[in-house]
Design a protein around this nucleic acid. Structure first.
Lengths: 140, 140
DNA sequence: AAAATATATGCAACTTAGTTGCATTTCTGG
DNA sequence: CCAGAAATGCAACTAAGTTGCATATATTTT
């Protein structure tokens, strides 16, 4: 229900000490409704008739990123993709799989890799991201 | 020695059935001399007085990529970075570590993660890339 | 070794993703 | 509901990468 997800997103924002603004609520809702990381453009498109400037969208994602509500995925295109920090531990998201044939990206939430161990040369590893490449069920 | 690395790169190109051109040889040499993935711009700078158009550099990297001599790394900036496919198995490169404090990227060739196992939903995993984030020795 | 043909290069112009500065608007706590 | 803090929109800009096309260079054929 609209009211429900509204109050849910409001609570998320409140907990993160961010102003509850229209864009933030709208973007969080978009991200809650998808199972793939989305680019700024895709997010804008899914906001439908609600138009926000792309600068605003970028800044919104940035603020959500800073408080950890959202994660940034480095997939294979030029554009970064964003997704709700959800089903991720503090130190790692699920792997992202990109099909070399059709180019689509999927979140493989069922699998996870053990955390890399620092090669004790003084590196402190805080997070890891895994990018997988291959053929998706449709193309295999 | 100049002649040596020239003939080495020529052989690499020949084996890959690529024309041995000046740019290709020069770029391969640059990549052989570094231990970090480099962006197009960094490569151009390291080519020194040899000037090649950036389009040419992109197309050269593309051709080297296609035959597998070079790998593309998705680090955190807008630009992609390229490195010699060296010390990588067919299915995975070493992890790349980016420091959240100073922003520098390092290749952690000493460690590797087990290959992800397909969640047998029909996904065929062919390659994996691991991106690590944290503090480097200088910043920790 | 020259000609034929296959491939690579350079240039100009363009697109896409993201950023900056600044004036205006919207939130939130008191 | 008001003051101050923070967010937004707009215009202009930068950075990274791409496209089309004419020219040049590499390889193959003879």
């Amino acid at each position: 229900m609209k009211l429900n997800s509204d109050s849910q997103t409001r609570n998320m924002l409140k907990a993160a000490k961010l102003y509850c603004t229209e864009v933030r609520i709208a973007i969080l809702k978009v991200l809650m409704k998808t199972d793939k990381p989305l680019s700024q453009e895709q997010i804008a498109r899914r906001l439908g008739k609600k138009h926000f400037d792309k600068v605003t969208i970028y800044r919104t994602l940035e603020s959500l990123l800073k408080v950890g509500l959202v994660h940034k995925a480095f997939i294979e295109k030029r554009a970064c993709h964003y997704e709700l920090a959800h089903n991720c531990t503090a130190s790692q998201c699920h792997p992202h799989f990109t099909c070399t044939s059709c180019g689509k990206t999927h979140c493989l939430t069922e699998i996870s890799l053990p955390m890399a161990k620092s090669p004790h040369k003084g590196f402190v590893i805080q997070r890891q991201q895994v990018r997988l490449e291959g053929l998706c069920p449709a193309c295999a």
